[in-house]
Design a protein around this nucleic acid. Sequence first.
DNA 1: TTTGGTTATATGTATAAACATATTATTCGT
DNA 2: ACGAATAATATGTTTATACATATAACCAAA
Lengths: 233, 233
Amino acid sequence: MTNSDLRNWQAVQEEVLRRIAARHWKPGDFIPNEEELSREFGCARATVNRALRGLAESGLLDRKRKAGTRVAVNPVRKATLDIPVIRQEIEGKGLAYRYSLLSHDMVLPSSEIRARMQSHDGEKLLHLVALHMADGRAYVFEDRWINPRTIPEIVSADFTNQSPNEWLVNNIPFEGGDIGFSAISAGEREAGILGCGLNEGLFVIDRSTWTAKGMITSVRLTFHPGYRMHTAI
Amino acid sequence: MTNSDLRNWQAVQEEVLRRIAARHWKPGDFIPNEEELSREFGCARATVNRALRGLAESGLLDRKRKAGTRVAVNPVRKATLDIPVIRQEIEGKGLAYRYSLLSHDMVLPSSEIRARMQSHDGEKLLHLVALHMADGRAYVFEDRWINPRTIPEIVSADFTNQSPNEWLVNNIPFEGGDIGFSAISAGEREAGILGCGLNEGLFVIDRSTWTAKGMITSVRLTFHPGYRMHTAI
DNA sequence: TTTGGTTATATGTATAAACATATTATTCGT
DNA sequence: ACGAATAATATGTTTATACATATAACCAAA
């Protein structure tokens, strides 16, 4: 019954997964400790550790020092999604990418944007609006605020051939950020830019990124109707 | 200039990150190999490996055997999102959870659903519709198809006190799945169930999960207007 | 020039051994 | 009975060493 030569961490991981799936180890149960498992599987404890650490990272196991390892009671599954540069996403689908800059101003932001960008009172920010097209059809538009205090180079950047999205990705490594996903109903502005009907449901991504020096940028990406973001678990 | 005692993998990781952020190592550049770095940092190669592997997993480095390690040219950032059970998501926000089952039938699926569920021709599937409420207000509704061939226990399950979502999470460990995120515009049905206006933009999650035995379930979660899914990177 | 096999090399993995650290369990003093 | 000090223990990490594996680079034969 017990396999006696699981000598690599992938095999150990699969066996543990199998036992969880077979409900041999049920949610909430403690599983044997690393040392016992390593003896059972005939491998080193480090190998078991590697396998279990992976499962804990993906939320399937809960581990605590001294307490032990247990099967997660409520498997909060973690999905990882790739966030590519828009041009690559479009070209990756085999479509022709085109981009146009719709506006480019230094303006005083609304209080909401000012708060999100942690900008000073009365400080102007760079506001960019750009449209990304796939095979000539509107794909997503990018409404972006950038803080020139954090990124002085931005004022001399040329966005005629490269989108702000791509410029930033290529030039400014960021250290952290947060992303929100939501849906809106197309208003006059969105319908006009994307060329879709009023009130169509549109997928929206809001993203803010920063470095140690401060807030870099905050952007809203509003996608064409029917857009679907996809991932596997 | 060179730090001489980065003896744990977190410190190594931070130093590598710092050099990338400082553009000392630019996108596309090869970085020194593990052995060189371990000498520079005064630690074991395994420690460097641990640090770099983590950065590669999060998409910041590209590693290939023999070729070496380079800073990712187009940092496809990976965001991980937690997918909790709906009850927990609601209770986690400090709101009162309630749930009601709107319908519960064995029916012949549409061809689209039949394809997605990989069900046989003429085979009936379990169709469930349930509404999840937070503080008495519609939060999300769950439109779910389940294959009783894969999950025979499902036909005798009682969904009066436990939602299909929670029943499945607690009883059927799954092995794989895929998730799609999109937006729709509220039609009659959605507006009726969620109690929102017609044409409001609604956030939608489509998820299918399976085990080795076959397709388990396919569900569409349609959220209330204004819902926002959130994550950090 | 192309094809195919060989070699060198960087990452990937496994191992034992030791120590670190968090946290539970126990014991002891009051 | 209660809280504080202490021991026990499971995971976490580091190390040196060895071997595995993918593959870039090179070289030779067609």
